[in-house]
Amino acid sequence: MTTKQGRLCGCRCTETTAGGKFRPGHDSKIVPQLEADHGSLLDFWSWYEEAMSTTPPPKR
């Protein structure tokens, strides 16, 4: 979602960026959140690969 000032931060903190995808430093919040949600990065990657095996990623 975009606003006049920018867009909502990609880490889902609800803060608005200056136009980029993340507030400064907020991109580093993603890896710990993936680990918390999936157990480890390897567990996340296994889940992702299985999910994407039947659903191709959207074309950009």
Rank of each mutant, 00 (worst) to 15 (best):
M1N: 01
M1Q: 02
M1S: 07
T2D: 06
T2L: 08
T3V: 12
T3D: 02
K4Q: 06
Q5K: 11
Q5H: 03
Q5C: 01
Q5I: 03
G6C: 02
R7A: 05
R7C: 06
R7S: 04
R7G: 03
L8A: 08
L8W: 10
L8M: 07
L8P: 00
C9A: 04
C13P: 00
T14S: 10
T14I: 02
E15P: 00
E15M: 15
A18V: 10
A18Y: 05
K21M: 12
K21C: 10
K21Q: 13
F22D: 05
F22C: 07
R23S: 06
P24K: 12
P24Q: 09
G25R: 07
G25F: 03
H26M: 09
H26W: 05
H26L: 10
D27R: 15
D27S: 15
D27C: 12
D27V: 15
S28V: 08
K29D: 14
K29P: 00
I30E: 10
V31W: 02
P32L: 13
Q33P: 01
L34P: 01
D37Y: 01
D37E: 07
D37S: 04
D37A: 04
H38T: 06
L41K: 12
L42V: 13
L42D: 15
L42S: 15
D43G: 02
D43V: 00
D43T: 04
D43M: 01
F44V: 02
F44P: 00
W45A: 15
S46G: 08
S46D: 13
W47C: 05
W47L: 06
Y48V: 09
Y48H: 11
Y48M: 13
Y48G: 04
A51W: 08
M52P: 00
M52H: 10
M52K: 11
S53Y: 03
S53L: 09
S53F: 06
S53I: 08
T54Q: 12
T55S: 14
T55P: 00
T55W: 09
T55A: 14
P56K: 08
P57M: 13
P57K: 12
P57D: 05
P57C: 11
P58V: 13
K59Y: 10
R60Q: 13
R60E: 13
R60C: 13
R60Y: 12
